[in-house]
């Protein structure tokens, strides 16, 4: 059936099965491929988007559950925190293969929106749902601290 939801400010209606994960609707129906598939069971965080501003694993969220909601993907994140995080990611050369980094950035920006000065433990608790098989974790941590510092100014 047709499912209607708002993605990055635009309302979309897609005719797909109710149980289709939002992830595949975004990627296959709307062509928004910045959001990645990594596990399909909410273990790796590569599929993270925002639902009404809060992080959401799109691989375990059926489109039937997001009717009328506002979805934001990596392609459209904006604001001071997003800019600070993405600048810190680039300056610190965080990514290796880069495949998980959309999800990492989405989680990091969400953390900084709620917590302007996260401790290492805050970072652990917010970010441990995002797996990076290249293990870029040390740089992720450093980049979040760096982004937080840049937001103080």
């Amino acid at each position: 059936m047709a499912h209607t939801f708002k993605v990055n400010g635009t309302t979309h209606s897609v005719d797909i099965d109710d149980d289709t994960p939002l992830l595949w609707a975004l990627r296959d129906n709307l062509g928004l491929t910045g959001t990645k598939f990594g596990c399909g069971v909410a273990q790796c965080g590569a599929c993270t988007v925002y639902l009404d501003g809060k992080p959401l694993r799109s691989c375990v969220t059926p489109v039937s559950a997001v009717a009328g909601a506002e979805i934001t993907t990596i392609e459209a994140i904006s604001g001071r925190e997003a800019e600070a995080v993405q600048a810190a990611w680039t300056a610190g050369d965080v990514p290796q293969c880069g495949y998980c980094q959309s999800g990492q950035v989405m989680s990091a920006v969400a953390l900084l929106k709620e917590n302007k000065k996260p401790t290492d433990q805050d970072i652990d608790l917010a970010m441990n749902g995002n797996i990076c098989r290249c293990a870029t974790y040390a740089r992720i941590r450093a980049a979040i601290h760096s982004a937080a510092r840049s937001l103080e100014v």
Partner: peptide
């Protein structure tokens, strides 16, 4: 490749 990878591009 860092900038693109940090932006889902």
């Amino acid at each position: 490749d860092s900038a693109d990878k940090a932006r889902g591009k």
